[in-house]
Write a protein that binds this DNA or RNA. Structure first.
Length: 524
RNA sequence: GGCCCCAUCGUCUAGCGGCCUAGGACGCUGCCCUCUCAAGGCAGAGAUCACGGGUUCGAAUCCCGUUGGGGCCA
């Protein structure tokens, strides 16, 4: 029976590297009909926070990675570690070290200076009983954690075997060999009495019956020490699988610097959980056919540790965006609307069904949900500007429409026609437009683009007829009245060349990063 | 500094001794579709498989070394 765990330290947000580890564990468990356990490794009493625990749980839930057991908290299991710590000490497999932190620091510096590996020399290992009593009496070390109430006068170090080697049969990397003599006697219990990460991890993995430890490559170097602890306790180590790292575009470890590093960053920027899950699965894992897109069940069915990649993977924001577009297009209109809603202006004159219709018009263009701003802003802003260079561009491409005045005339014609008709469905709008094209003997594009420009201030947008229908007759006519393609014809006489009055809604599309709606969904 | 890991198009990767004149995907370029932008379809550019030695009839694939990147000790 497969039992795996994800064991984050609650010292910050859940990063994509951690999320990928969680995902692979989860996939492995589900694929093998095994158990996925969540364990919070909060033994770093200084840096661990409840807030971080909350964020990690929230991130996992958002990604849809549900756990079968836990969360367990290591700080609630201190007695358990205590027992095994005492056992090792009694058996002489661990010893008290009284070296003060400053002394260790000096030793390390000296070692580096002499170009030796900066490892603890094991000087406390061979202390006699009398020497030990002396140290106890003196009361060192004086580390910060020692100052705490239950501080002890020593740390406990694990006595690594001095000869032989430790072999790891890694499921991804194969045989990896470490010489025992080169491993240092690592601290397994701090002066505070709390076990260190490496120790608590071993105890829990054993006691929780973990069969496969799937974790990041950064833990590979810790593994020989951990294996020796298993042996000292008379336990069989689990199987190990060390996943390659995830890097940023500059080949450095992925971090905040690269734009988004935490799972919640991606959520807030408008990525779908199914996108991130699918994309993360592709970092360091691939099927023999290099398949890119997976249905959730398919991913579980096909997941296999044998397909894991050994070399590190660079996180490709481009591909993530492409994939997000794919998943956004797969949403139903109402799902899309619900997802995009937090990115829409908090208030507008449109009712829900109208909004849903508008959101759906641009479904194939979203890369992220936050694109709603860029894509739909003109629906909400009656004071959108007209840019003269756009008008010029329009004229340049129009053999029949010679001047801005011609454009205005067309707008007036359309205004009259729309006014005269009761039907303002997209079909009716199209009919009117095509008729007008005939009458004017212009190219369809000349007429269509002119109307688009007049009623939205843009040359790009959704299907013109549907866009008009969504805006509604009254609004379209109002916008046509407002249309002023050049300064001479501006209805209020103000210079219209470089755009109209400032936006009243604050919902402007060209610089989404500056707009609060795009930064935080759920605003307002 | 020591130990450990890694090395195929810009990126994610397929490949596990002959099917490879190296396949797919993102991105890029062009064409088609089209009321614009997208989406979609088609085509194209892009990798002397890090380098140097071996082993073999034959190597991207196995071995050794070098270089480069990363991790741990921190």
């Amino acid at each position: 029976m497969v039992r795996v765990r994800f064991a984050p330290s609650p010292t910050g947000v859940l990063h994509v590297g951690g999320a990928r580890t969680a995902l692979f564990n989860w996939l492995f468990a589900r694929n093998n009909k095994g158990t996925f356990i969540l364990r919070i490794e909060d033994t770093d009493e200084v840096r661990s926070t409840d807030e971080s625990v909350g964020q990690i749980l929230e991130s996992l839930a958002w990604l849809g990675l549900d756990w079968d057991e836990g969360p367990y908290f290591q700080m609630q299991r201190k007695e358990i570690y205590q027992k095994h710590l005492a056992q090792l000490e009694a058996q002489g497999k661990a010893y008290r070290c009284y070296c003060p932190p400053e002394e260790l620091e000096t030793m390390r510096r000296l070692a580096l200076l002499e170009k030796r590996p900066p490892r603890y020399d094991g000087r406390c290992r061979s202390l006699t009983d009398t020497q030990r009593q002396e140290r106890e009496a003196k009361g060192s070390p004086e580390g910060q954690s020692c100052a705490k109430s239950q501080g002890q006068k020593h740390v406990l170090r694990f006595a690594m075997p001095q000869e032989g080697e430790t072999r790891i049969s890694d499921l991804i990397r194969g045989q990896v060999c470490f010489e025992n003599l080169l491993q240092q006697d690592l601290v397994i219990q701090k002066t505070s009495g709390i076990p260190t990460y490496n120790f608590a991890c071993v105890i829990d993995d054993h006691l929780m019956g973990i069969t496969h430890v799937i974790r990041g490559e950064e833990h590979l170097s810790n593994t020989p020490s951990q294996i020796q602890i298993y042996k000292a306790l008379g336990w069989e180590p689990p199987q190990f699988a060390h996943l390659s790292m995830i890097l940023g575009p500059d080949s450095a470890k992925l971090s905040k610097r690269h734009g988004a590093a935490s799972v919640m960053d991606y959520k807030n920027q408008g990525y779908l959980p199914q996108t991130l899950r699918n994309y993360l699965a592709l970092l360091g894992w691939a099927t023999p056919t290099s398949q890119d897109l997976f249905e959730p069940e398919e991913l579980i069915a096909k997941f296999n540790l044998d397909y894991c990649q050994k070399n590190p993977a660079v996180f490709d924001f481009n591909k993530l965006s492409w994939m997000n577009g794919i998943y956004i297009r797969k949403l139903s209109k109402s799902e899309l609307f619900q997802a995009v809603k937090p990115y829409l202006p908090p208030k507008s004159d449109y009712d829900e069904s109208k909004l849903e219709e508008m959101v759906g018009l641009e479904q194939e263009k979203y890369k992220t949900l936050a694109d709603a701003g860029r894509l739909l802003d003109f629906f909400f802003d009656e004071n959108y500007p007209y840019q003269w260079p756009d008008m010029e561009g329009l004229l340049a491409k129009s053999p029949n429409m010679k001047t801005a005045g011609d454009c205005l005339k067309l707008a007036q014609t359309l205004e009259t026609k729309f006014n005269a008709s009761d039907n303002f469905s997209s079909q009716a709008v199209e009919k009117t437009l095509r008729e007008t094209t005939q009458e004017y003997k212009w190219k369809t594009s000349e007429v269509f683009h002119s109307l688009r420009f007049a009623i939205s201030g843009r040359l790009q947008g959704p299907s013109l007829f549907h866009m008009a229908e969504s805006l509604g007759k009254a609004r379209v006519i109002q916008r046509l009245k407002r249309f002023h393609p050049d300064p001479g014809t501006s209805p209020d006489g103000s210079p219209a060349l470089l755009g109209g009055a400032p936006s009243t809604t604050g919902f402007k599309g060209n610089s989404p990063r500056l707009n609060p709606y795009f930064l935080s969904p759920g605003h307002g």
